[in-house]
Every structure is written in structure tokens, then in C-alpha cells.
């Protein structure tokens, strides 16, 4: 968890800041994130990656409805997965009645 209130903020290449606390004096009284949840790019947690097969997809949008991370968006009436936040839980594949979601090994 990232905390605000520290002067030791480092920026890595992707612009994600990590904060290192040396001791309790640096820390705020309560656990508080440095920014909002959009800042927390949960896509890096992913070990399997869902891919929507365009030829099978009927745009029923069940995947959009059931995605617990709300990272399936609709573009031109079709579902698009936002890989910055997708944790790879596989629920979209589970709910897809047409078998249009394929789970691939994440290559990192």
C-alpha cells in the first residue's frame, strides 16, 4: 500500500510512484492511499490474460456486466478489456455463453 505524507517519493519508468517509509514517524495516522484507486494499476497482478475472440463475440456484454474490476468497457458497441487494470480473474470467460473469451498465459 502506498502512503502519502512522505518526502521519499521515487518515480520509476512508468510514472508509478513508490513511497518508502523509514519509520512510523513518516507515516500518516491511518492507512491512506497516495492517490485514488485508478492509480493502482492492478493489471500487473495478472498471470493469465483474457482475450476476446472477435469472430465468436456477439456483443451480448455479459462480460462487461460481470467484470468485478469494471475494466471491460464498450467501444463501438463491442466489449474491450482494459489490460492496465484487468487482474486476470477469468470471470469474463466463465460467463461468456459463446466461448468467445480465451485465457492465455501472461508473458511478462
Amino acid at each position: 500500500m502506498k502512503k502519502s505524507g512522505s518526502k521519499r517519493k521515487k518515480s520509476n519508468k512508468k510514472g508509478i510512484k513508490t513511497i518508502i517509509f523509514k519509520g512510523h514517524k513518516d507515516m500518516p495516522p491511518c492507512a491512506i492511499s497516495f492517490a485514488n484507486t485508478m492509480y493502482n494499476k492492478t493489471g500487473k497482478w495478472r498471470s493469465i490474460k483474457p482475450v476476446i475472440l472477435k469472430e465468436k463475440c456477439t456483443s451480448c456484454l455479459l462480460c462487461w456486466k460481470f467484470c468485478p474490476e469494471a475494466c471491460v468497457s464498450i467501444k463501438n458497441k463491442r466489449p474491450v478489456i482494459d489490460y492496465e487494470y484487468c487482474k486476470g480473474c477469468g470471470i469474463c470467460q466463465e460467463v461468456c455463453v459463446k466461448g468467445a473469451v480465451l485465457l492465455e498465459e501472461e508473458k511478462k
Binding site: M1, F21, M27, A31, I32, S33, F34, A35, N36
Partner: peptide
């Protein structure tokens, strides 16, 4: 906006 009280690991809790 900030998240309050989110998951905090043993090294900070």
C-alpha cells in the same frame, strides 16, 4: 480522492 484503510501488509500495519 484517496483510498482509506485498504489492504496493508505486515511491514506497515
Amino acid at each position: 480522492p484517496h483510498t482509506f484503510g485498504g489492504l496493508t501488509s505486515p511491514d506497515l500495519y
